[in-house]
């Protein structure tokens, strides 16, 4: 394996969790809901995925557990914001705080244990192509799923009736309601989808990225995923670009640390966060770009009149 190949492989593993979480949140935000609890759902997905894989020995059951855990967390958020019409910002924060606490508690007995790694699926023949083979055809299943999800979401949002309904609900919930669509039900569906993606992303971290459980192992990735949605101006394919861009930054920091160039490790570790801020500033400076694509009803509560 050449050095460049190794770098690209690690970039893919660093980008995949960001991509998974961001694509889920994109759908949620398109339906007009701002779920700031991505970090919380992700970290609970990570711990449940790890715990299940460790006890059963099957990483795939772990992945499933991660998804279910993320969905359970998002259901809590859905109940609060949709059924009880609470403030979405505060409820999302609550979800993150609860998730971080809960995962610490669940994961306490699993700290330091050897994990079960999600094995790559080598596609026969194709994965033996030099250089490109291992990169394109030798990944684990979640990498394929994450990329496929982008194209599926992109297609559904832009070209199908379901996507149109989701966008209608997100852009004007009163009109969508008047047309006879069940705003709350659509939003519940999107929130659950977002939860599943965040849980999956967490499970990827604890089963493939670093197959072990470390407290707070998401280290802000959920928040970066939220920033990615803004960066992508709510367009699915741009999330793919953004996620890989951030994955690259993350890995470059690690490599620079390993090479021991004269920069303190703390400076390099802070890069992903600083670049997130920079990117947010650059995007929000362009008022028209953000205004065109921002779902008009984002963050607003909706209570149907009967």
């Amino acid at each position: 394996m050449t050095g460049l190949e190794a770098v690209i492989l690690t970039i893919i593993t660093a980008s995949t969790p960001l991509l998974l979480a961001a694509i889920g949140e994109l759908v949620v935000e398109r339906s007009g809901v701002l779920n700031l609890g991505v970090e919380g759902m992700m970290v609970v997905g990570a711990v449940c995925g790890f715990a299940t894989a460790y006890t059963t020995g099957s990483p795939y059951l772990g992945v499933l557990a991660g998804i279910l855990a993320g969905m359970a967390m998002s259901l809590l958020f859905g109940f609060l914001t949709q059924t009880l019409a609470t403030n979405q910002v505060a409820s999302g924060l609550a979800l993150t705080l609860l998730g971080l606490g809960l995962s610490g508690l669940i994961g306490e007995s699993f700290t330091g244990l050897p994990g079960v790694k999600l094995q790559p699926i080598d596609i026969p023949v194709l994965s033996e192509i030099p250089f490109l083979g291992p990169i394109l055809f030798g990944q684990d299943i979640l990498v394929y799923i994450s990329v496929a999800l982008v194209f599926v979401v992109s297609h559904v949002m832009a070209r199908t009736r379901t996507g149109l309904v989701i966008r209608a609900v997100g852009d004007n919930h009163h009109s969508a309601h008047a047309l006879g669509y069940n705003v709350i039900a659509v939003r519940y569906g999107c929130i659950l989808f977002g939860g599943a993606c965040a849980g999956l992303s967490g499970a990827y971290l604890s089963l493939a990225y670093t197959p072990q459980w470390i407290e707070n192992m998401t280290s802000g990735r959920g928040w970066i995923a939220l920033a990615l949605v803004v960066f992508a101006t709510w367009i699915a394919r741009r999330v793919l670009i953004g996620a890989y861009l951030f994955g690259t930054v993350w890995i470059m920091g690690l490599y620079a640390q390993a090479l021991g160039i004269g920069i303190p490790s703390q400076v390099l570790s802070s890069f992903p966060y600083l670049i997130t801020i920079l990117v947010l500033v650059l995007i929000s400076r362009n008022r028209t770009l953000t205004k065109i694509n921002t779902p008009a009803c984002i963050g607003q509560t909706f209570v149907p009149d009967r």
Partner: peptide, 24 residues
């Protein structure tokens, strides 16, 4: 584990937000 404290704090915030619905 003292992590239970953090869980309680999270649960508390959920209940506060839920109960505040009753005001409006």
């Amino acid at each position: 584990s003292d992590k239970t404290a953090q869980v309680f704090q999270g649960i508390l915030l959920f209940f506060i937000l839920a109960c505040d619905t009753l005001i409006l």
